[in-house]
Simulated assay, not measured.
Amino acid sequence: MKRIENIAHRGASAVCPENTMVAFERSLELGATGIETDVQLSSDGRLVLIHDETLSRTAGAEGWVKDKSFEELRNLDAGAWFHADFAGERIPSLDELFDLVRGKDILLNLELKNGIISYKGMEEKIIQAIRDWDMEQQVILSSFNHASLVRCKRLAPEIRTALLYMEKLYRPYDYAARLEASALHPYKQAVTREEVAAALAQGIATHPFTINDLAKMQELIDMGVKGIITDVPDVLAALTAVHSH
């Protein structure tokens, strides 16, 4: 039985400030087999890892990610909001995360945050970075912006894509196959056993988000999902350890 991918949502975000290097490092210590993070662009075109399009919630500053230079973003504190112990944590660059996981048996799920802000040239930039680091086999690109994922697929057929969605879709597996996606990343309420099976029959994996409840994890594993996106990789790691014996 192939492992269930244990994908840490924004890193170990239950115990560390999300989308920081400390959160990514901690998630690996807690048993994650994958890391999910959010990619945006600084005003000078650098790929940075932060969820919100604005800085107020996790970086204690006013304004938009897109309007700040990489250096300005690096001067912000991305840890103090979570707990004083993490004061001084920085907004990471994509390169730093690549450096952490390259050559390890870790899946990297990069979510392009280009639904609200259409970052021009983002797809080209992210693919160039993946190729520069030889990460083609380790990365899966996801987005709620499915047109962007089609663009990624055209630019780099060898890099896997995954469709993020919140609501129920009609035959999502057929839609995914048409877009040449490798996986569906549905919100946890939008997934059924039949869809998981039908997707798998077309070679398409299902990795629902964001599941922190043990019973729900178990239910999804029983449905046949290939991975789970979670804030608590240690909880999922304990559960999958039971399965593998």
Rank of each mutant, 00 (worst) to 15 (best):
L141T: 02
D99N: 12
E136V: 14
M166H: 13
P157V: 05
S148A: 15
D134Y: 10
L107M: 15
S148H: 06
K168Y: 13
K104T: 08
K168T: 14
E111L: 04
L108E: 06
S93I: 01
S142G: 11
E123I: 06
I140V: 15
L108S: 05
G103R: 12
E124I: 04
C152P: 06
L107F: 08
R102V: 06
F98T: 09
V150R: 09
L164N: 13
C152M: 03
K113Y: 13
R154G: 12
D95Y: 00
N109P: 01
Y119N: 01
E123W: 09
L100A: 02
R151G: 03
Q137E: 14
E96T: 06
N109M: 12
Y165W: 03
R131A: 01
Q138H: 14
W133F: 13
I130G: 05
I127Q: 09
R171W: 04
L164R: 09
L112E: 04
I140E: 04
R151F: 12
M166P: 00
L155F: 09
L164T: 10
G121V: 08
D105L: 03
V101M: 11
R154T: 11
S143D: 05
L163M: 15
D99I: 00
I159G: 00
R131P: 01
R102N: 02
Q137F: 03
P157D: 04
I116Q: 13
F98Y: 14
I159M: 02
A156M: 10
Q138E: 13
A147D: 12
C152H: 06
L155E: 02
L112M: 14
Y165H: 15
W133Q: 03
F98S: 10
V150H: 12
E111R: 11
V101R: 12
Q137I: 01
Q128M: 04
K113M: 07
I127H: 08
E96P: 00
L107G: 03
R102W: 01
G103V: 09
K104L: 14
E136G: 09
E167C: 03
K120T: 07
L100K: 03
K120F: 09
A147S: 12
N145Y: 01
R160P: 00
E111M: 06
R154W: 10
L97T: 11
S148V: 05
Y170T: 08
I130R: 03
I130Y: 10
K125N: 05
K104G: 03
R131G: 05
L112P: 04
W133A: 15
L149G: 06
E123A: 05
I116W: 12
L141I: 15
G121Q: 06
R171I: 02
L155V: 05
R160I: 00
H146L: 07
K125E: 08
Q137G: 15
G121Y: 08
L110M: 15
L163N: 13
L149R: 04
R160Q: 07
N109G: 01
S142Y: 11
I116E: 15
K113W: 06
R171Y: 02
Y170N: 10
Y170S: 11
